[in-house]
Amino acid sequence: MLGDLRKFAFRAKLHMEFILARHISLYAVVAFLAALLNAYIVIPSILDQIVTASMSGPPFGPVRPPTPFMGISLTLAHLIFSLVSVSIAASMAGELASTSLFHLSQPLRRSEYSVSWLLAIVWLPSLLMALSLFVPISAFDPRLVLRVSFQPIYLRLVEDILTFSMFCWAALTRRRGVVAFIGIFFILLLPYLSLVILGLISYVFLGGRNPPSLLLTVYEIIFPSTTSTLFLGSVGQLSLDPMRASVGTLIISVFAQLSYVLYFIRKFEVK
């Protein structure tokens, strides 16, 4: 059992290294630039907060609410690493249409193959995003990490993990164009388009009253970070607290990822 697990981890790692080898330097540069950008935006903001706080109390006092700059930094990191995730998913679609015959003719299980792509599409960009936010701050001064509010970062990561999981499913179409379209749709359009639709439902069918709480809850669960950003200051209007909604997001993410792996193991054929 343990030996099987070790073999699974070894082969999945080997395949992941191979598929990332082509673009690994590009991803490293992107992560470095994102970290620099975050450092440029967040560190002065935190320092400014410390200076302001020191006027009225001791430095490095209790944690303050997040600065508005954190939101900009998070949005930038989200956009950058969403593009990284889409590009890896497009690579997977390309591989499934061509070189998967080579890969799956090797002693590599379909589970190992699909999990290595899952790690590359979902978990690597999420990890890089988190690191690009925390590494520059802790490199500057580890104590500054405590000044950052973790909730918006956590919500952003949870929302992105669900979105990136969808890209794994998109890759199964074996078409790069479909992955690119779904990527742009999920990152740039869906979160805002859904709100417009909710607004229209509210205006046309409900005479301007709030849309049904079920619809709003579904929206909150799928987009916990977007919800908490857009409804900042009016969280009372929400049917769920974003942190509670994120539990649902995590459950759906786990389901999306497990079903993707199970589909691959049971149904995927190399034609």
Binding site: E95, F102, Q106, L108, R110, E112
Partner: peptide, 29 residues
């Protein structure tokens, strides 16, 4: 399949290999 492919060598009719890799990289993998 993985156990079988571990002891079976295969050459496909129209194989497609990752174009960016070198011969040695692919064989090593």
């Amino acid at each position: 399949g993985d156990k079988i492919r571990g002891i079976v060598g295969v050459l496909h009719e129209k194989p497609v290999y990752p174009q960016w890799a070198s011969v040695r990289q692919l064989i090593r993998y």
